[in-house]
Each structure stands twice: as structure tokens, then as C-alpha cells.
Amino acid sequence: MSRFKTKKGKGSAAINTSSLPDIIFMLLFFFMVTTVMREVSLKVKLKLPQATEVQKLEKKSLVSYIYIGPPVKSKLYGTNSRIQLNDTFANVDDIQEFVAKEREDREEADKKFITTSLKVDGITKMGIVTDVKQELRKAGALKINYSTRKGRDKN
């Protein structure tokens, strides 16, 4: 039986590793291309609510983000939800200016496709969210997206 074949006195052949760098480079390029560096550092806690009927946000370059949530440094800024635009805390009044600026950054043809993604923490009260929505309406940024995680909320 072949199972009991006596081994010939041959050590295992060395695996040729000369193509290993190539393989690794391939992986490297894959990750380099897919990597999206975080643009802003979050100053608010964000635990997004879950939803089942979610849609993917396409064309990330056409999305501007508004973050709302309780500040990370709660000792300094309190626990009430705050709005974060870009890298700083902002007030509701700043939103129109923010929208205008975001529009300026885009090309003329893309301007009407800008989506505003609202990344809001689950425990935030709707008051502040509504204020933001009203400001967005006034600014003419009508396409919005309530950012949620995909999953089933069971409670």
C-alpha cells in the first residue's frame, strides 16, 4: 500500500519565495486604492441608529457631512448634543454658510447632486435635528440622508 511507502531520503524541497514580494505588492496596491482616509476627527460621540431599509450612498465626493451628537469631551462641553461641521463645533446659524461653502467646492454640474448626510447619534433629541433640517431647507440642500447602520433593531 502506498500509505506505507518508505520515504526516500529526500528532504522537502524549499518553496520558491521569489514571487512573494509581488504578491504582497498586489495586496498593497489593493489596499492603497481602496483606502479612504478620514477627513475629519470626530468631536462628538456617534452611535448611529440601526435600520433595515438602508440605501447605499454613492459618489462620496458629492456628500457633505453634518455630525450631531454629545461631545466627546463632556467635561468641557457638556452632554447636550452639538453640531459639528468639518472640524469644529458650530451653531445652527452656521449651516447655511456651510452649505454654500460645500457647494462652492463642487463643480458646476455636480452642484445639484450634493447630498447632505446627517450623522446623528441615537440619543440626540429631534429638536436640534429639526432645526438643522429647517436650515438645510432654507439653504436649498434638499437631498438628505439619515446615516444609519444596517441591521435589525430589536427592542
Partner: peptide, 27 residues
């Protein structure tokens, strides 16, 4: 190459933004 690879592996955020899209009424 490994070193670079690990760097990009760590910094990569693969999450796709998902959410509920709505249209606000004009003012």
C-alpha cells in the same frame, strides 16, 4: 512591502455609508 501593507490595512476604513435617503420640501 509587508510593512506598507500593514499600514494600509490598519488605516483602511471599508465601511460604505448607508442610510435612509429623504427629500426635504422646498421652503
Amino acid at each position: 512591502a509587508f510593512l506598507l501593507l500593514i499600514f494600509f490595512l490598519v488605516t483602511t476604513t471599508m465601511d460604505v455609508d448607508t442610510g435612509i435617503t429623504r427629500k426635504l420640501p422646498p421652503p
